[in-house]
Nucleic acid binder design. Structure first.
Lengths: 235, 235
DNA sequence: CGCCTGCTTGATGACAATCAAGTTTAGTGG
DNA sequence: CCACTAAACTTGATTGTCATCAAGCAGGCG
């Protein structure tokens, strides 16, 4: 199914807006003619777990979460994704997990078949895709350690430090301001906790002087070394 | 460093035994001249997390576990691996996790550089590697759901069903006998539990008639449908 | 201004970790 | 082959932690 049709059936309030294809910059976008820009509002579903992969979506702006759901509704968020990340992988038949927008999002979408064809003729692109997949693999192992063996405070510390990748502003004195576009519930479902526990750990960190909660979605890391110690990161 | 040297420094009681290179069959072994067969005894370490990847190891016989360790000793086993699985991935600099033998193991080892060169000229091999990586990725997401959102009994059920891949004997009446070469502690460290909890769940399943414990390392699945229901598998 | 949603804090209880003891299995040597 | 030892597994009792249930608070939008 074409992405417009798909989006229409998925989200009733989706408004298709094809914009002029972006050029230059970005991961896949250096290969023009095969892409379209789509725009989503917050809380819209881009793809469903288990659906046949027809298209790959490269995130241009905004934040996306991917997740899996058990049949009684329990949810695990497998990752948060931003600019340059790709939803859906070539060579595989079906989406591993569902993808839903958190903020307003623009994506650049490609026919899977065309990407695969390009990969065949262009070893550099193939290498990029492989590298991306391996990066994800490494991240997911790191996350498995969090979920399986870390305490809640350690998981949150790990999460916050990983969020530095998303950091917009670098504040003087090595403090980092990070943006958390996702809800507490999202963070909880990512860390295998409840939102209450996530809140409590945030409060704990605040009172311990490790962080400052400017707003619920804006946090300043005031003591990264201490957080790193807690996080027990391998890298 | 060459694998022999590495193995020597790693395990004091390692006995290097280069055998004639295997030919035909297997994943990578169709490309001869670049491989050597190595043999390990139970409990020996093949590679350390964080070490520079010089070699890739394809498992020929036996079972291997891969794991990550936190600085206070907590361990998470990221996977169990058997025939055809490859330890270490090309294009990446360092091993994600440590690999240790559970049973006696023979591996076929390849210089990473040579595999990469082959991948460049042989798109089929490249595709195979990518497919393998994607398969791992899918498995790891499934495992993340277990670790983050499933109850202990559900995790064990999931684990047992996944073990059917390793099943040696298919017993009449659709019962499956599975071999568990790993210890309870290994299973616990794989599922993010303690060995006591794993034991208790096994006992629970036994008394519920779901399984039979022939020996601690031999289990018959007597009611796979019920286990599947518990496991909440997506596939 | 007031409702609604998302966040925070508090009280309680369930469940799995921990601590501990006992049992089985496997391995070793007489 | 059997006795002995060590390791792995199992079961029990207790504790601590995090989920659950519940209520209050703050910010955003109509």
């Amino acid at each position: 199914m074409r992405p417009t049709a798909a989006a229409k059936t998925i989200a009733r309030d989706y408004y298709p807006s094809f914009i002029t294809p972006a050029k230059g910059a970005g991961n896949l976008r250096e290969y023009p003619k095969i892409n379209n820009i789509l725009r989503y509002r917050p809380g819209q579903i881009i793809v469903f777990e288990g659906d046949v992969i027809d298209y790959l979506y490269e995130i241009v702006t905004g934040t996306v979460k991917t997740y899996k759901i058990l049949n009684d509704g329990r949810r695990l968020i497998t990752g948060f994704h931003a600019m340059g990340d790709i939803i859906g992988l070539p060579t595989d038949g079906r989406y591993f997990h569902s993808a839903e927008t958190i903020t307003e999002v623009t994506v650049c979408c490609y026919r899977k078949g065309q990407i695969e064809k390009l990969m065949g003729s262009n070893p550099n692109l193939a290498k990029k895709i492989v590298k991306m997949a391996f990066g994800r693999l490494q991240d997911s192992y790191e996350q498995m350690v969090s979920l399986g063996r870390k305490r809640p405070d350690e998981r949150v510390a790990t999460f916050l430090l990983n969020c530095q990748k998303w950091a917009t502003v670098q504040i003087p004195s090595q403090n980092v301001m990070i943006n958390l576009p996702m809800s507490r519930l999202d963070i909880a479902d990512y860390l295998g906790l409840t939102q209450e526990t996530v809140c409590r750990v945030f409060s704990l960190f605040k009172h311990a002087g490790l962080i400052t909660l400017v707003r619920p979605d804006q946090i300043i890391l005031k003591n990264s070394p201490q957080l790193s110690k807690l996080a027990n990161l391998s890298e």
